[in-house]
Nucleic acid binder design. Structure first.
Length: 559
RNA sequence: UGGCCGGUAGUUCAACUGGUAGAACGUCGGACUUUGGCUCCGGAUGUUGCAGGUUCGAGUCCUGCCCGGCCAGCCA
C-alpha cells in the first residue's frame, strides 16, 4: 500500500508535468554551522535528499554562513558527518552562502542602481522603533530618498570598512506600511567587523538571511526550496528579491512544511544549549539528547530514523509526535538486525543442587544469535551450577499474572533446562540472597518428555564465567509530554531520574567481543549499544515491549 | 491589536480534489512462541473546532465565530 504523495511531492510532480523547470528538480539542505543537528533536522535532511533522489535530481549541502558570530568549521564538519551517518551523500562538495558574497554584493549594487535599496544611517533601535507594529504603519527613514549615486558610494564605503559596527545598513526599499512586517524595508547588509571562518577578514558587511537565501538558491539552480513553517512570511520577501534581480536561470520557489516535534524532549537550539552548559546532560552526544550524535551514541540505527521520517510524512500542521513512535521504528529495525545475548542487570544467585559438578563443571549450551535472522547462526554459552538470574524474575509471593520463578515454581532457562526453585535463602533483613534450585536433566532441548509446561522462560548468566559491565539505563529527559507547555520553563519538567547507572551487570562471556558502537539485544531486556569509546559500557537504546510492565502500570493506575 | 498559516480517532497523517471517514503507532482481546519479544487475527475510539448557508448530497464550496501557530532581530 503506497502512501499518497504529500503536498510537496505533489507540487514537484505537477511542476514536472507542466515542464516548469524542464523536468529538473534540485533541492538543498541549508544548516547554519553554529550548532549540532538533531532529529528535527533529520526530517528536513530526509525530505530534501529524498525528493531530489526520487526525481533524478541533486541535493546539495549548503552552509548558511551569513553571520560570523558563533559559526565555525568544526560545526560544519560535525554537520557533514551527521548527514553522512544518516546515510545521505550531498551532491558534490559542500557549498556555502559565503561562496556567493561577491555575487550577492554585485546584486546589491544592482538593486541600489534600480532605486530599490538604500543605505540607512539610523541605528538598530531607531529602525526597530520606526518599523511600526501590527496595527500601525512604519515611518520612512530620512535616508530613504538618497540618490542612487550617494547610495552606491555609501555602500562601497560600507564594504571598504569605513564605518563601525551598526553605523549603517543597506535596506531594501519596499513599503513601510506593508501588512507583512518583513516587507517594511528589510535590512540586507549589516556591518560586523568580525572575522568569518571561511572568508577571514575579506568582508565586514554580511548579508542577512533574507538577502542571502533565495539568491543562493537561484545561483545554484535550486528549483524547490524547502524550509520550515516559520519562514512562511518570508516567502513574500524571497519572491520580491528574486523578481527584481537578473537571474541566471529559473526562479526557485519556497515551500514551507511543519518542523518535527517530539514528546518528552526539546528541540530548540537555545534549550539544548542550556541543557549542555548547565550540565544537565553530559555533552552534545549525551544519549538522552535528540541530537543525531546523542541518538547515534544511544544506538539508534540511522535506517530507523529515516523510516520514521518517511512514515510521519510532511504537512503544514504543527504537531507533536509521540516519542514512542520513533522508538517503535528503532525496535522494528533492531529486531531484524541485532544479535541476541544474555545479560543480568540486577543479579540474584541461583545454586543448582543437583548439577553433576564433578562430571560436568561446565556445559557449553548452544544459543540462537537471532531468531529473525537464521544466517546469524549460534554461539556457545557456558552453564554451571551457580548462575545469576534477574532479581525481577523471582518473587517470594507472586501476584496474579506473574509467570516467573517463585518458591515451588518451575521455569525454563533460555537455551538451558527447566529449573525449579526449592528453597529461598534470606538475610537478616529478609532480603532474598540466594535461590536453591534443581534442574531437570531431561529438558535440555527445552521441552519436558512428560509434556509438562512452564509459563515463562528467563535469561541467566553462569556466575563464574560472567563478564562485568557498566550499563546505563535511560528514561525520558522530560517528564511532561510537551515541556514548557502553557508558557512554563521547560526545565521545570527535567527528569532527574532520566539516567541510571548499573555498575555491576553480569554478562555472558561472548559480550566481551562486542565491537565498539555495536548494538545487541539483551534478551528480554532491550537493545543495548556498546559505547564506542569506553569498553564494557552499554547504553540502553530502547527497552523491549514489556507486557508485564504494562500490567503493573495498569495495576498502579487503575483499581 | 493587523496579516498569514492551520484545526479530521489518544498521536501523526489519509480521504482520487462535493458522494455518507481510513492507516500507522498506542490501547484492548485472542492465536502462536525456548525472549511476557517477534509474527498473525480481531475489537474499540471520531456530532471531521463551532454555527449558519449553497447543494439531491459538504471533511471537501461560501459566510461568521472560536482555538492554535508564526510575524514588530542589523538571528537563521
Amino acid at each position: 500500500m503506497h502512501r499518497p504523495l504529500d503536498f510537496i511531492r505533489e507540487r514537484v510532480q505537477a511542476d514536472n508535468a507542466a515542464g516548469t523547470y524542464a523536468g529538473r528538480v534540485q533541492t538543498r539542505f541549508p544548516p547554519e554551522p553554529n550548532g549540532f543537528l538533531h532529529i528535527g533536522h533529520a526530517k528536513a535532511v530526509c525530505l530534501n535528499f529524498e525528493v531530489a533522489a526520487e526525481n533524478g535530481g541533486a541535493c546539495r549541502l549548503r552552509f548558511d554562513d551569513t553571520n560570523p558570530e558563533g559559526e565555525d568549521a568544526a560545526y560544519a564538519q560535525a554537520i557533514a558527518d551527521d548527514i553522512a551517518w544518516l546515510g545521505f551523500e550531498p551532491d558534490g562538495r559542500a557549498v556555502h552562502a559565503s561562496d556567493y558574497f561577491e555575487h550577492l554584493y554585485q546584486w546589491a549594487e544592482h538593486l541600489v542602481s534600480e532605486g530599490l535599496a538604500y543605505v540607512d544611517d539610523q541605528d538598530a533601535e531607531t529602525i526597530s522603533a520606526t518599523r511600526g507594529d501590527f496595527s500601525t504603519p512604519g515611518v520612512e527613514s530620512p535616508c530613504r530618498d538618497r540618490s542612487v549615486e550617494e547610495n552606491l558610494s555609501l555602500l562601497r564605503d560600507m564594504r571598504a570598512g569605513r564605518y563601525d559596527n551598526g553605523e549603517k545598513v543597506l535596506r531594501a526599499k519596499i513599503d513601510m506600511a506593508h501588512p507583512n512586517m518583513l516587507m517594511r524595508d528589510p535590512v540586507m547588509y549589516r556591518i560586523r567587523h568580525i572575522p568569518h571562518f571561511r572568508t577571514g577578514d575579506a568582508w565586514c558587511i554580511y548579508p542577512t538571511y533574507d538577502w542571502a537565501h533565495g539568491q543562493s538558491d537561484a545561483i545554484e539552480g535550486v528549483t524547490h526550496s524547502l524550509c520550515s513553517l516559520e519562514f512562511d512570511a518570508h516567502r513574500q520577501l524571497y519572491d520580491w528579491f528574486l523578481e527584481h534581480l537578473p537571474l541566471p536561470g529559473d526562479r526557485p520557489r519556497q515551500y514551507e512544511f511543519a518542523r518535527l516535534n517530539l514528546t518528552h524532549t526539546v528541540m530548540s537550539k537555545r534549550k539544548l544549549i542550556t541543557l549542555v552548559t548547565d550540565g544537565l546532560v553530559d555533552g552534545w552526544d549525551d544519549p538522552r539528547l535528540p541530537t543525531l550524535r546523542g541518538l547515534r551514541r544511544r544506538g539508534y540505527p540511522p535506517e530507523a530514523i529515516r523510516e520514521f521520517c518517511a512514515h510521519i510524512g510532511v504537512a503544514r500542521v504543527n504537531g507533536v509526535h509521540e516519542i514512542e513512535l520513533l522508538e517503535s521504528f528503532v525496535r522494528t529495525h533492531l529486531n531484524r538486525t541485532a544479535q541476541r545475548r544474555m545479560a543480568v542487570l540486577r543479579p540474584l544467585e541461583v545454586f543448582i543442587t543437583n548439577w553433576p559438578r564433578w562430571d560436568r563443571p561446565v556445559e557449553h549450551r548452544s544459543a540462537v544469535n537471532n531468531p529473525e535472522d537464521p544466517p546469524a547462526g549460534n554461539r556457545l554459552v557456558p552453564f554451571t551450577e551457580r548462575l545469576w538470574i534477574e532479581r525481577d524474575d523471582f518473587m517470594l509471593d507472586p501476584p496474579r499474572k506473574f509467570y516467573r520463578l517463585a518458591p515451588g515454581r518451575e521455569v525454563r532457562l533460555r537455551a538451558g533446562y527447566f529449573l525449579r526453585c526449592n528453597d529461598v535463602e534470606t538475610d537478616s533483613d529478609g532480603k532474598v540472597v540466594r535461590l536453591w534450585c534443581t534442574y531437570d536433566p531431561d529438558t535440555g532441548d527445552g521441552q519436558a518428555p512428560d509434556g509438562r509446561k512452564v509459563r515463562a522462560t528467563i535469561h541467566w548468566v553462569a556466575a563464574d564465567h560472567a563478564v562485568d559491565a557498566t550499563v546505563a539505563l535511560y528514561d525520558r529527559l522530560f517528564t511532561d509530554p510537551v515541556p514548557g507547555a502553557d508558557g512554563r520553563d521547560p526545565l521545570e519538567s527535567y527528569n532527574p531520574d532520566s539516567w541510571e547507572l548499573i555498575a555491576d551487570a553480569k554478562l555472558e562471556p561472548e559480550l566481551a567481543k562486542t565491537a565498539p558502537g555495536e548494538v545487541v539485544q539483551f534478551e528480554r531486556l532491550g537493545y543495548f549499544a556498546h559505547d564506542s569509546g569506553t569498553p564494557m559500557l552499554f547504553h540502553r537504546t530502547v527497552g523491549l515491549r514489556d507486557e508485564w510492565a504494562n500490567i503493573q502500570k495498569r495495576r498502579q493506575q487503575g483499581s
